[in-house]
Design a binder for these strands. Sequence first.
DNA 1: CATGTAATTGCAACATTGTTGCAATTAAAG
DNA 2: CTTTAATTGCAACAATGTTGCAATTACATG
Lengths: 141, 141
Amino acid sequence: MKESTPFATLLRDRKLKATATRIEVLSMIYAYKKPMPFSLIQKSLLGFDRVTLYRTIHVLSENGIIHKALMDENETYYAVCSSSCSTDHHHHKHIHFKCSACNEVSCVQTDASLQVSIPGYLTTHFEVEASGLCASCNIEG
Amino acid sequence: MKESTPFATLLRDRKLKATATRIEVLSMIYAYKKPMPFSLIQKSLLGFDRVTLYRTIHVLSENGIIHKALMDENETYYAVCSSSCSTDHHHHKHIHFKCSACNEVSCVQTDASLQVSIPGYLTTHFEVEASGLCASCNIEG
DNA sequence: CATGTAATTGCAACATTGTTGCAATTAAAG
DNA sequence: CTTTAATTGCAACAATGTTGCAATTACATG
């Protein structure tokens, strides 16, 4: 019963077994379109063991398939990585934006030159978390 | 017994009672110089109730006296805010940098124009978390 | 400087979140 | 189909965070 769905293939490419849990978690996060709160992932995945979910999230993160989108709060959000993420390093040219009006979190692509240079430091990786009004709310308000 | 230490004064300025817990927590984080891991704050403050520490951290954060320095991990770090932070908004012109060599987290001032502009969005606040080699490790390595 | 009052604390109990070891199950390679 | 290593579920535990309430404390006021 070897599935050949895109996610199953993606998993095997990364030398990971294409198990039901992993495929479901991925589909769910992917379908959500925006970074998905961990608690919601949990709620939506009844039928799987709580521990399995934790382990699944760990494995998918470690292997550059999903990534954390930390917000300045308690909840952790997860989103499916773009194809440029490798096993060893996440390469995101986007920032995580939380709208203070609709409270939605989104991954915003910033092809603009987003750079961080600190004298004397060697910056190999950085993440940006922003808040304010998203495109929709900015128009309406 | 009205203390007039700097932290006691700072607290009263923000309409907060200058209690022993708050002053100790503040002194401790301040003395640490870098963002201090929450777990270490806990360990260092035996004699106070666990709950009191949580509540203290919440109050100090809410009032712009300390701020979270989130790293892409599980542990949360706290640092004393600069004077520009008000009750309603934190204004940090610095980024949080974690050195991958010495593992130290530091607040790095970036007076350079660190800007985030997304077409259609109104960005009122953003945080940057970077990693790589800090000044010390960059020289030595 | 005594005192009233609202804020803060400690305690107990609970809820949530995350971890570990191990036996049973399963993916997938041959 | 069989073998094997990875993954899962379970149980038990550890850590983390929350709530209500009575006792205590800071400090404003007189």
